[in-house]
Write a protein that binds this DNA or RNA. Sequence first.
DNA 1: ACCTGAACACCGTTCAAGT
DNA 2: ACCTGAACACCGTTCAAGT
Lengths: 223, 223
Amino acid sequence: MVLYAGFVAVKITKKPKGSYHHPDLEQALVDAAIRTIGKRSVESLTLRDIGTQLGVSRTAIYRHFEDKSALLARVALEGFRMFRLTLQAALDEARERGVEPIEEMGVAYLGFAMANESHYKTMFGDVFEAHDCYPDLNEEGGAAFEVLLNTVKEEQQAGRIAATQDPLRLAHVLWAAVHGIALLGMSGRLTGTSGSGATLEELSRLHSQIVLTGLRTQRRRRS
Amino acid sequence: MVLYAGFVAVKITKKPKGSYHHPDLEQALVDAAIRTIGKRSVESLTLRDIGTQLGVSRTAIYRHFEDKSALLARVALEGFRMFRLTLQAALDEARERGVEPIEEMGVAYLGFAMANESHYKTMFGDVFEAHDCYPDLNEEGGAAFEVLLNTVKEEQQAGRIAATQDPLRLAHVLWAAVHGIALLGMSGRLTGTSGSGATLEELSRLHSQIVLTGLRTQRRRRS
DNA sequence: ACCTGAACACCGTTCAAGT
DNA sequence: ACCTGAACACCGTTCAAGT
């Protein structure tokens, strides 16, 4: 609805919004930020740089975003959207091929993180921690997480893993493990000279298999 | 040896090194940095600030450290040293009390991380990723990790967990999981409104128990 | 409405100059 | 030897002024 109202507003305006340099400067700013973050890092991204990249003043951004944090929040938002689609695709394919969905989602998670290192760090960085006022960002992040959470619940209901554990806690723990592998992997602490020779994907599969084995063992433990 | 030579040099100097404002400005700079990081964050730490904190010019630091990164590397180094002692103490106590050492080390790991959030982030931040030229930092980090690695090996040799797995891979996976819980926990993604009601310590214990159960199940799996 | 250029208050770092 | 103060090249952000 908001989108439609915006479209009407553009239609009745003589000149399309932002057409002076770009048909949609707002999106161009986000794309340029993502591109720059991908090439370098979040820290090295400057508003001046993306301004000149787009042939625009370095203060033009403030017409579309409140400040730099707001732009980075949008970058993170688009990251979480791609992230959710990636996880969903991995889940669908695992279901189709009849392989372990949780293990495959872990591998897909890791693949996304390693293919978009800086973008991933932006998504999980301290961008929105300072201001906790990006509700749509939390929503998109939650939507991505729910793909995993729902899968855990489905596996429990199908009896393939123990239903004695709280699915939310289980999903949190699985998430944390692959998140940790991704971040330690990015810093080179799991591979190279100090490594075991295993790739990050192999480590992720190893972890999934150990955990799933543990969950299939019905032995009850002290809470 | 280097330390002793430094002491001799001080002794034969009429005026102790750096005594103009501080008996040991170098250590005072590190302490002030750690204190400031603890109160605020790594990003908000400025050389000007710690300079004025110590009643010293903002360029005085360059007499003791090559640049800001070198100071942060020292901060991280001291963090890893404390970290190793914390893990070792947890291990010793677990051995003494006869409880699960890997689970207790995970809890101790998490306790250190959450009690020193910013310092922990400095240790695992991008400080030394840019310059890979802090060999002593990697050494201290490796020493802390080895406490965990050795414990995994000991548990395998004692037959309490499956010896079929590479201990290094196992230790990496255990490390990654608790690292992930710590970082996601710091960003509030595992607790609060979106949380399960479990504390981070409970999540860590849950993970350890699932993994250890999986490792005690001797079933062989495809590599 | 949208964008600009100058200005402001920061930052890390360098360097000639002091004691 | 150790420290300082001015200067340099950055940065995000503000704001009066342009079209």
